[in-house]
Design a protein around this nucleic acid. Structure first.
Lengths: 117, 117
DNA sequence: CGGTATCCTGTGGGATACTG
DNA sequence: CAGTATCCCACAGGATACCG
């Protein structure tokens, strides 16, 4: 008798506001890129600057700081000369990578679909 | 002999700019929420307005239009009275849901970790 | 009901210059 | 090398009003 599958009241909302909260982790234009480029291992500040299209030092710095505070990555200063700073994903940060890969997969196909039309 | 795992040249960059491109699909503060609330089935405009915290009609409208153009969701006008418009995820759009779930999982744990400290 | 139009603000991000 | 400081802009998003 259930002709209407959709309940008018609401669809299962396991965690509405949490989503917004979680999305902040990869918010901004560059955060996902940073995570992406760190997925193969630690990178240094200027390496990331070169890796990632044209990201300004200011923004890269800001995003790295933010991601560090969120527990996505670690910052390690190595007392060499000249100074060297390595950024690496934490365990939890690394778990974001598969999700990003999924998004990329779908994104690719969405794009292909749009261009096919 | 490979003591250093990290290559100084670059980590595997399968698709650097594509990431940015793909992230646009879920960019903005609300796009993920919209996808999220549609994952259980079609919803109408005002239902989404109520579902999603305090999103303004303008922004909801803008995001829906954008997501429709990107092929993430469909818009269906039903000639009832009063008029009724249903939004639903496309097949590809639905594939974004698992990725969002992953992000939420990690986000939760990141948050728990921060609060534990 | 399902939007659009207008106005306004916050902030992410770019450019450039400078520092330890 | 690894940033910080300053200035400036574009645009996502909120509030309110109005429309078919």
């Amino acid at each position: 008798m259930s002709i209407k599958v959709r309940k008018n009241k609401a669809p299962p909302p396991p965690d509405p506001c949490m989503l917004t909260e979680c999305m902040k982790v990869i918010s901004g234009a560059w955060a996902p890129n940073i995570i992406w480029w760190l997925r193969a291992g630690p990178r240094r500040f200027n390496e990331l600057r070169v890796d990632i299209p044209p990201i300004s030092a200011k923004v890269l710095s800001a995003r790295l700081t933010e991601l560090e505070q969120r527990g996505v990555l670690t910052r390690t200063v190595r007392p060499t000369s000249p100074p060297s700073v390595e950024y690496a994903l934490t365990e939890l940060g690394a778990e974001l990578v598969p999700a990003l890969e999924s998004l990329i997969q779908v994104g690719h196909r969405l794009k292909a679909r749009r261009e096919a039309v």
